[in-house]
Computed example of a mutant assay.
Amino acid sequence: MADNATPNLPSRDFLKTERFYSKLGFAASYRSGHWLILRRGEVQLEFFPWPDLDPAENNHSCCIRLDDLQPIVSQCREAGIPEARSGIPRIVPPTRDISGLTIAYLVDPDGSLLRLVQNPPEG
């Protein structure tokens, strides 16, 4: 297995976290009372318990770099995640960022921000 890093994000309730992300194609690959790992293809998210977390005060975030951004954005829409600039949860549709990258922003029910970044074409 190649070296890699995975984000560690807070969860107020592992079952609710797993249900939310399962609508986006993630499945549990590990679960205990103290840790949850969800996978979607090669993307892995790890969660630690934080039962008294205030989602509005959560400042955890990560980037998920994708060869094809559109499928997960479509899954967010199909899952009924609101397209909005505020509120929890929400999806901000993909736009071209000042960096030149196309990025969508997903905020999960615990207030964690996931930047969904379209990988630039190779060449």
Rank of each mutant, 00 (worst) to 15 (best):
109 P>Q: 04
66 L>S: 05
96 R>V: 15
116 L>E: 02
106 L>I: 05
54 D>M: 04
21 Y>G: 00
92 V>D: 09
81 I>Q: 00
115 R>S: 13
100 G>M: 13
3 D>I: 07
61 S>H: 14
75 Q>T: 01
57 E>K: 15
35 W>D: 01
64 I>K: 04
86 S>W: 08
93 P>E: 12
45 L>I: 09
97 D>L: 13
42 E>R: 13
39 R>P: 04
49 P>M: 02
20 F>S: 04
52 D>S: 11
120 P>T: 06
120 P>Y: 01
50 W>K: 14
61 S>Y: 08
23 K>A: 13
121 P>L: 01
31 R>L: 15
95 T>D: 09
30 Y>E: 13
53 L>F: 05
43 V>F: 12
52 D>C: 00
65 R>A: 02
77 R>Q: 14
82 P>V: 00
76 C>T: 01
20 F>N: 04
108 D>N: 11
52 D>E: 10
96 R>W: 01
79 A>W: 07
67 D>M: 02
115 R>W: 04
114 L>S: 04
46 E>C: 14
41 G>S: 07
95 T>I: 13
97 D>N: 14
113 L>W: 10
106 L>G: 09
95 T>A: 14
81 I>V: 12
12 R>E: 10
62 C>Q: 07
92 V>C: 09
48 F>N: 01
31 R>K: 13
31 R>E: 12
19 R>P: 06
62 C>A: 15
102 T>M: 07
75 Q>F: 00
34 H>Y: 11
56 A>N: 15
55 P>Q: 08
97 D>A: 11
